[in-house]
Structure formats: structure tokens, C-alpha cells
Nucleic acid binder design. Structure first.
Length: 531
DNA sequence: CTTATTAAACATC
DNA sequence: GATGTTTAATAAG
């Protein structure tokens, strides 16, 4: 209760209804109409709940499973058809800031879902609370964000990218068949449970297992920082998360900030050197981040960050200018130069890669590019292709996000081709316009209009180019990696297409950017209000 | 086979 | 003790 934000738990929620509701796949910015008419059902529920109250555990409904059957045949749970995950999503969505602490989620449940009404006083060991926690951790659709308040627990937000159902990393990663079993070994290894046989304990044993400890780490103060970074983790792919987290320790403790922060760090990490295998995972991470940045709430706090280490901010600014960027975008951009230097100094690696890549033209390193982009649109294209190669589309994403949606910087206007490409390959369910917006949002590939021969584009578009890239790709990176990227991209595209196609909710009215806009214009980002 | 719900072991804070 | 993460068992589609 000490929460200033005040839980904010509107008593809405549709107690009933929504037998499955698949359409709302992309829960993020969706205001979602929310049919309120569930009243009657709610009441009914109430009755049940009340009855249950006495007995305490009251899982009557579920136990036999028979009880649930009643009524039209649905209500898979005592409280209705919604899953815990859905309930949690609703809870979070209902919050003005789109984020809640665990306790607040509990609160919301108790307040909004009749069934839990009387279970508010249960302690954390209560089954349902355990389940809530479990769901939060399990699904990638929920992300944990460090809470600045000292004693407070983390904020839980919805992953803009929509973790979908999968918590899983991209299936690919581990294709080591039975290794799945082995995988478990990795973790803390100890787990205590299976204590038998002294484990090899090992420590670093496995051959390629993960990276040693990633070299990067620019040092800088921070230790605890790492903590902060960790806050955002892509679940399963512990590796990636770890790395990313550690990689860029710098940064003040801007609670909310790290969301974006991570992105850049990831970018660097991937580009910097090692990490061929994780690319996919990283991408995944980034993907989520990318979308998230534009979220208003997050940005809010941003400004404060300005001071000290903007390093990652710089890149971040690139990608999020669409929302807050405009408002105080300039201020953010300015520091670029500085940040640029610093970042470059830290990561000279890209250079190497670059060299390896056999570029035909000498573009700046990815880092540079990121920053430069907003400033020098033209150059942007060039490197973008290469960068794409390296980062596997991340660059593209960031770029697009920066400009496309709300239209802002001039860069992208240069080649609108991107859109056209996409449709050709994929079956479009949506109108071209939507396509565009979607593209900008999610499809890393289409993002980069570098039509021409840029392997990247082609690759994403069609499988053919493999051979092509082969020439270019150094053995270091090798095809595998490339493939992974590819796969990823496709994945995203397909996903986005399918998903968006169905639920389709992103409409950015102002699609099709007419290269005519002042600077600061639409201000859709008021929503945020630091509490 | 996949998704969900539950329970429970652990780990941190 | 509250939070978080993970595993595992089990039911349902």
C-alpha cells in the first residue's frame, strides 16, 4: 500500500466472457475496448466465491474438473476462462503506468476478480499467489523492471513484443536433442535436489558452452549496476541475458531506464566480437526492447538520465525518438557525440568485424552509425546493410522505429522501398498501410530498404541469397550464424504478419510519412506520469 | 504435444 | 517473509 502509484485497480475486468480471446495477442498498447457487460456473470461468480470462502482452499471447481463444465461449457477455472497470464495482463494493462508490483497484482486480483475477493489476506504461499508468481516468471510476455524504490519489489510490465506464449527461446538454439535434459544441469547445478554423486562441479567445463565471461565490460563503476541490468531478462535464454546485463554496466541507477539501455548494450555485445551463437537470442531480446522503448511510460523517466552516462542512451535515443524523442529529442541527441566517443573507444571490435566482412565501402562502425543515423541519414543506408549483417537486423529495427511510425527524421523517406519488398514475399493479410507500420515496428528486415544487392535484404526476403552472402561472410561469422539471423528475421516477419494481421491493432494513423512535418508535432505521450 | 494450473524447492533480498 | 525462478506432476484440448 505504500505505493504512491496506488495500485490503480479499476474494478473492471470481465469476470466472464472471453472463452479464449485469441485476438488480443498483442496486448501492449492496446487499449482494448473491454466489454463491460459481464455483470451478471460476475455476480454468479461472486456467489461461488463466497461459498468457497469458508472452506478455505476451495478449489472445488477445479478438482474434479466437473464443476467447471457447467454453463455453456466453459470456465476452465474457478474464476472464469481466463488464465492467470491473461488476468495478470489485464491487471497490468489496467494500471495507468502499465506496470505493477507483485503485490499490486495480487491486489488487483483480489479487487477485480470475484473469485479472489476473499483470498486477499492469504500469505504469499497461497496457491494462487504462487501461481501468479510462477506465471510472471514463466511467460516472456511479462517483463520485470527494476523498481527504483529501495525496498520495493520490481515492476512487472507487459512485454511489448508480446512474449507470445512462448517463454522459450527461439526453438533453434538448442537443437541438441536430448540435451534438453542436460541443459538443466547447467544452471546452478546445485539445486541440491539431486545431490547424489558429486557432480563434476565443474565450473567451466563444457566446451563451447557459453562465453567465459564476456570480455567487454568497460568496467566503470558499478557492480550493483549489473543488477539493474539484469532486471530485464528474456527468461530462458539465460546466457544472453547475462551477457547483455553485464556488458554494459555503466549507467546510473535510473530505475526504469534500463529497458532501453539494454538494447544498446546488446547491440554492442553482438557486434563487439564473440557471440556468434547467441545472436539469435540477443535478437530476441532486442526485439522486445525495441518495441518497448517507444512506450510512453518508460520514456518518462528518461530525461533524468541525461546527465552522466548517456552512452547507451545515444543509441536508444535513436530508436525511440518517435515518442519522447521528439519532445526533447534534441537534448538527447546532443550528447551523442560524446557518447559516441566513449562507446567507440570501448568497442573497437566492430572494426574488426567490419574488416572481415569485406565491405566494399568504408562506412562507420555500427556504433557510429547508430548515432549518426539521426543526424546523417544518407550515410545510414550504407552501413545499415552491413550492420544488419552484423547485428542481424537490430540496426534496422532501431532505425525504423526511430523514423517510420510517426514519421520524423528524414532518413527513411529516402527509400520507401522497404514496404514493397515485404509484401512480395509474404502474404499480406493487412492493407499495405498496415504493412508499413508493422514493418517499421517489427520486421527488421524490411526495415532496411537497402534494396540493391544488400544480402541482408534479400536474405530475409528469400532464401536464395545464401550463396551470395557466403562470399561476403567471413568464415568467422559463418553461415550458421547467418542462418540463424535469417531464421529469426523470418520468424519475426511471419509472426508479425500473422499476429498483427489478425488482431491488428497497431494503426498508426499517420502512416505514410509525408516528408512534411515540423519537428515537434504529435504528442501522444502524455500518458506517463512519474509517480 | 502443447498449454495451464498447482505444488514445491530454492535463491535472493 | 516476500519475491522470483525453476522443476515437476497432472489435466485438458
Amino acid at each position: 500500500m505504500a505505493e504512491p502509484g496506488g495500485a490503480a485497480a479499476p474494478p473492471d475486468i470481465d469476470p466472464d466472457f472471453e472463452p479464449q480471446s485469441r485476438p488480443r495477442s498483442c496486448t501492449w498498447p492496446l487499449p482494448r475496448p473491454e466489454a463491460e457487460a459481464g455483470g451478471a456473470a460476475g455476480a454468479a461468480e461472486e456467489g461461488a466465491g463466497g461459498a468457497a470462502a469458508g472452506p478455505g482452499r476451495a478449489e472445488g471447481a477445479r478438482a474434479g474438473g466437473a464443476a467447471a463444465a457447467r454453463k455453456g461449457g466453459s470456465r476452465r477455472n474457478a474464476w472464469g476462462n481466463q488464465s492467470y497470464a491473461e488476468l495478470i495482463s489485464q491487471a497490468i494493462e489496467s494500471a495507468p503506468e502499465k506496470r505493477l508490483t507483485l503485490a499490486q497484482i495480487y491486489e488487483w486480483m483480489v479487487r477485480s476478480v470475484p473469485y479472489f475477493k476473499d483470498k486477499g489476506d492469504s500469505n504469499s504461499s497461497a496457491g494462487w499467489k504462487n501461481s501468479i508468481r510462477h506465471n510472471l516468471s514463466l511467460h516472456s510476455k511479462f517483463i520485470k523492471v527494476h523498481n527504483e524504490a529501495t525496498g520495493k519489489s520490481s515492476w512487472w510490465m507487459l512485454n511489448p513484443e508480446g512474449g507470445k506464449s512462448g517463454k522459450a527461446p527461439r526453438r533453434r538454439a538448442a537443437s541438441m536433442d536430448n540435451s534438453s535434459k542436460l541443459a538443466k544441469v547447467r544452471g546452478k547445478a546445485s539445486r541440491k535436489k539431486p545431490p547424489l554423486q558429486s557432480a563434476p562441479e565443474s565450473s567451466a567445463d563444457s566446451p563451447g558452452s557459453q562465453f567465459p565471461k564476456w570480455p567487454g565490460s568497460p568496467s566503470s563503476r558499478s557492480n550493483e549496476d549489473s543488477d539493474v541490468w539484469n532486471t530485464f531478462r528474456p527468461r530462458t535464454s539465460s546466457n544472453a541475458s547475462t551477457i547483455s546485463a553485464r556488458l554494459s554496466p555503466i549507467l546510473t541507477e535510473q530505475d526504469d531506464l534500463h529497458d532501453e539501455e539494454l538494447l544498446p548494450s546488446l547491440v554492442y555485445s553482438s557486434a563487439s566480437s564473440n557471440v556468434p551463437p547467441t545472436v539469435t537470442e540477443e535478437l530476441e531480446l532486442i526485439d522486445g526492447l525495441n518495441l518497448m522503448s517507444p512506450s510512453s511510460s518508460v520514456l518518462s523517466t528518461q530525461q533524468s538520465a541525461s546527465s552522466g552516462q548517456i552512452q547507451r542512451d545515444s543509441s536508444f535515443s535513436l530508436q525511440s525518438p518517435n515518442a519522447a524523442g521528439q519532445t526533447f529529442g534534441n537534448s538527447l541527441f546532443n550528447p551523442v557525440d560524446i557518447s559516441l566517443q566513449s562507446s567507440v573507444s570501448h568497442f573497437s571490435a566492430p572494426q574488426t568485424l567490419e574488416a572481415l566482412l569485406t565491405p566494399s565501402s568504408p562506412p562507420p562502425r555500427d556504433v557510429m552509425m547508430t548515432q549518426v543515423d539521426p543526424v546523417l541519414p544518407q550515410t545510414g543506408n550504407r552501413m545499415s546493410s552491413r550492420t544488419l549483417l552484423l547485428l542481424g537486423g537490430q540496426a534496422a529495427q532501431s532505425k525504423m522505429s526511430s523514423g517510420n511510425p510517426r514519421g520524423k527524421p528524414a532518413e527513411q523517406q529516402a527509400e520507401p522501398v522497404g514496404a514493397s519488398v515485404l509484401p512480395s514475399t509474404l502474404p499480406m493479410v493487412t492493407s499495405p498501410q498496415n504493412t508499413a507500420s508493422i514493418t517499421s515496428l517489427k520486421a527488421p528486415v524490411s526495415a532496411q530498404p537497402v534494396q540493391l544487392g544488400s544480402p541482408v535484404l534479400l536474405s530475409s526476403a528469400s532464401p536464395a541469397p545464401l550463396g551470395l552472402n557466403q562470399d561476403r561472410l567471413p568464415t568467422d561469422l559463418d553461415i550458421d550464424m547467418y542462418m540463424e539471423n535469417l531464421e529469426c528475421d523470418m520468424d519475426y516477419i511471419i509472426n508479425s504478419e500473422l499476429m498483427d494481421g489478425e488482431g491488428l491493432d497497431f494503426n498508426f494513423e499517420p502512416i505514410l510519412p509525408t516528408p512534411s512535418y515540423p519537428s515537434t508535432s504529435q504528442a501522444s505521450n502524455h500518458t506517463w506520469v512519474p509517480s
